[in-house]
Amino acid sequence: MRQLIPSIEGATFLHSLFSMDDAITIPALQEGDEDAFRDIVEMYQDRVYNTCLGFLPTRQEAEDAAQEVFIEVFRSINNFRGEAALSTWIYRIAVTKSLLELRKKRRLKRFAHFIPWAVGQDDPMDSLADPDAHNHPLAQLEDKERAETLYAALGSLAESQRVAFTLHKIEGLSYEEIAAIMDASIPAIESLIHRAKTNLRKKLSDYYQRQLS
């Protein structure tokens, strides 16, 4: 069964979210301390990678996006004013980078629809609904067909619903944490997740009705 947040990691997360650790780490990071940067990367790399993997279809794309997240952290740490916890800020960057990458893929997909030879058949965006072919964790499951259907249904949700739902269901974050990341109120997040569940159920229901008829 899936662990929402592994115990040690979860403790670290809550610690970094609510303790004064940020106050020690951030000045060191701002001074360009390589050890501090390494510590931050090691502390957050799994969470950032998993967040990216919740949106992007392949491990390679998720790793590229995760690297870009830390590059952004490295470049922008001097602009970080501590209004949010460091973890919240890093999650925000991870979600933004993943969504930007997804939008880029969608634009390319539309372009490929008109001029397929320009994009080629081996382009990774062909894998949007094919996690099986690219070793996505969803494809590691026994029921690959269901995983693919679910992944496609998640991809068809409105962006804000998808972000809230993915962070809650796949990353295991609480409503409070998601509200901080998305800069929204807790009721707004509850509403987004509720609508995401309803829409997901409807999309799957329509899909299976067509399949079974």
Binding site: M1, Q45, Y49, N50, Q67, P137, L204
Partner: peptide
């Protein structure tokens, strides 16, 4: 039958494992 399929597919979410980043992540970064 449709309801059963929908529940089965939504149930996949409960089985998703967290994937660790590559051990070479920091080196590549």
């Amino acid at each position: 039958a449709v309801e059963k399929e929908v529940e089965g597919t939504l149930g996949v979410l409960e089985k998703v494992q967290r994937a660790p980043a590559s051990p070479f992540f920091y080196t590549r970064l």
